[in-house]
Nucleic acid binder design. Structure first.
Lengths: 299, 299
DNA sequence: CCGTTACCACCTAGGTGCCAATTT
DNA sequence: AAATTGGCACCTAGGTGGTAACGG
């Protein structure tokens, strides 16, 4: 008697796996395109970057806070991105005057900093696991009348594979990176945004999921376990006045990177301090907090 | 320590209250417009309707199945809409040849029929209550390349107020209708859809909420308790090739009505058979099913 | 008297880390 | 030995009707 299933699949905003080409041609609709490229380590982009502060340091293994964020030591709740680079590294990036005005700040910087000091780890599972902390950003300098697509991806930081030395409580290089995986873009499900929306409200990527399943069909971002990654946030100005087939110039992209959001993908937490910090700060893990668990001991 | 709040409000797809004017000018973005009109009883539209089968019968109090649906007696899982009318009743509706091809069917017809036979009731609360059954429709005849906005609203069936006679188990007219309420359109949060999406997948209005709070700020649909209502589904072809300020012609609308979805808004269920059917068919009410409740008696 | 409200127990749905078992 | 998996208890978040209290 219970009413559950229906003949047709229901529309949902799950299909968020996009190729860059699909994005360009479709202009950000929620269709799923099978075309998938593979991404190369961030190092390659960095070499071509024109940033004042070289991103090369990002490739170092050390994850203990030199990149605590551009606002390190300040009490600001949000962090400005260190640098921008193009989604597709073609020629040196010269964003249009209009796009150059756009700024993006990380709203959850304080929490990210705490994790970053310890060396952030993110669980990846076959079915997909959310990130914690969540990437939440806000924009300024956008045209309130224009429309924008906001998306994120996650790129390798280097070509290394890591392992955790429990007795030393530190990460060690364990060899060369595993073969690259299908690159996936996570288009924020509320895209396209009006500039007005972006100025008023924060964009949260809480629903993005990470997986180690190379054959994932849900559009989750696929990562290699025991590798280091850097999330990136991209904003694209949508041109809707013409048929939008591949006429998107690179100046219409902006990419923002927050170094304090680097993390190592794992299938089980390695550093116990990370586990503790996750339990203490993620509401969904409340069941594992000290007070609850002390009662277990008291029994 | 727990991470919860953030300085900026988070973007969500909650703001779904639209005026028709706002829809036309914004082309279906998710902004909230305060402009609210009041709607008039369905009767007024019906008079101007050019439908073959007069909708006038809809205004009759009887809710016991003469309108079991256009497919009455058939075992089809979905129902075709009986008739279409314009969102704004101006001149007799002559949809463009293209829009005339569009058909819309009710995917949940079987369940709706069961409720309709008993006289469907929907709870309305201050904070907003979902509809059960849910309005789920699928479209055919749309242009797979075009973009469409899909929305619903709920209009009064007549100018009457009702009361339920428990001893007779039937509804009686209790007087003239209360003053009309702000008219609200619920734009499906996944709008705009591509025609391709609409052909593939069903559109579900499961998230729409009904309220009796005239000052509701959440964009829920506002109804008068003890009044009869008819949900309507609208589809608008989106023209994005020009600046879209009020140049939407009425031919670009289509409206679909499923008579088996009429209901009476209530703050508490009146007909016990409706209560039982809700409990038996809504998964969220499983806690009230016979087997669970018999154990209460067994105590 | 009838209609509305607030709170409740009981669900669905799904996000946590834990842990034992399994795989490589 | 190291890494992965699946089931689990325990949460968050929120959708049900029941029920007693309230209010016109």
């Amino acid at each position: 008697m219970e009413f559950t299933a229906s003949p047709k699949p229901q529309l949902s905003s799950r299909a968020n796996a996009f190729s860059i080409a699909a994005l360009m041609s479709s202009g950000g609709s929620k269709e799923k395109e099978a075309t998938e490229n593979t991404i190369k380590p961030l190092e390659q982009f960095v070499e071509k970057s024109s940033c004042a502060q070289p991103l090369g340091e990002l490739t170092s293994l050390d994850a203990h806070g030199e990149f605590g964020g551009s606002g390190a030591g300040s009490s600001s709740p949000s962090s400005s991105s260190l640098c921008t680079e193009p989604l597709i590294p073609t020629t040196p990036i010269i964003p249009s005057e209009e796009m150059a005005k756009i700024a993006c700040s990380l709203e959850t910087k304080e929490l990210w900093d705490k994790f970053h000091e310890l060396g952030t780890e993110m669980i990846i599972t076959k079915s997909g696991r959310r990130m914690f902390p969540t990437i939440r950003v806000s924009f300024s300098g956008v045209d309130s009348e224009a429309k924008y697509i906001v998306l994120m991806d996650i790129v390798p930081v280097d070509n290394k594979r890591y392992r955790y030395a429990y007795h030393r409580s530190s990460w060690l290089v364990a060899g060369k990176a595993d073969p690259p995986l299908p690159a996936r873009l996570y288009v924020h499900p509320d895209s396209p945004f009006t500039g007005e929306q972006l100025l008023k409200q924060m964009v949260s990527f809480e629903k993005v999921k990470l997986t180690n399943n190379e054959l994932d069909q849900h559009g989750h971002i696929i990562l290699n376990s025991m590798h280091k990654y850097q999330p990136r946030v991209h904003i694209i100005k949508k041109k809707d006045h013409t048929a939008s087939l591949l006429n998107l110039k690179s100046e219409e992209f902006r990419t923002f990177i927050f170094p304090e959001t680097v993390f190592t993908a794992v299938t089980a937490y390695q550093n116990q301090l990370i586990t503790k910090l996750k339990i203490d700060s993620n509401p969904f893990a409340k069941g594992f907090r000290d007070s609850s668990r002390l009662t277990d001991i008291e029994r």
